[in-house]
Amino acid sequence: MLRLSHINKSFNVGTVDEKQLFTDFNLEISKGEFVSVIGSNGSGKTTMLNIISGDIKPDGGDVFLSGDNITKMANYKRARRISRVFQNPSNGTCPTMTILENMSIADNKGKSFNLTKGLNNKRKDFYRSRLETLGMGLENRLGTLTGSLSGGQRQALALIMATLAKPDILLLDEHTAALDPKSADIVMRLTDEVVKENEITTVMITHNLRYAVEYGTRTIMMHEGNAIMDVSGNEKSEKTTNDYLKIFNEISIECGN
């Protein structure tokens, strides 16, 4: 489904800050997998997602999506098949537009943005039913500007929008990190439901080890640009947060911290 092949990536080449992050990095994700990515700050998780989405071009290596080499494809063209939810809740919606307007543009993804009416009133009931699954009462506030919603509400809306036109791959970058524990749990549960229901291949970065344990079919731990742990199936279901913590600690000792 998705394959990163022999990826090299350095930042600030030729300066004192030069940093070789990825050296011959390889990763393969099969269709239908739900991968949690954990790892310390600066280990390259976001950069990996950016390379998949096309926001960052690798210095070397190739990115394959369903067999097509998309390494040179612009980020917005890849977005036809890749959806993304960011850490910052303001990134997933347009604040000066209403919930209905936001849902309408998200629903139009992959079709032409022409001179026909932007609001999709015909699908209002469908949008309401999607929003109802959040249990946040947003279905009764279609006319509210999303800028006036709370971070959790916006993030939940962003998730619904990102999956309205079903993507081949869903990328989630710490999408619950800015939320309070309760909202985070709601959004995480919703993520799981949407992903399972639509069988979307998903890569989720999280610092919440509990999520990595409870959700997903595979867990990868990143460290200094390498996947130092990669478990799935039974091996994954046997792992607990303590196991993950132990590996974290081992790495820090190795680094001399």
Partner: peptide, 20 residues
């Protein structure tokens, strides 16, 4: 629809990218 995109690009360019 085109106008909706115009309105979103100033506020949230990233959203427009995710809309392909």
């Amino acid at each position: 629809k085109s106008g909706f995109l115009l309105r979103s690009v100033g506020d949230n360019e990233g959203l427009v990218v995710t809309l392909a």
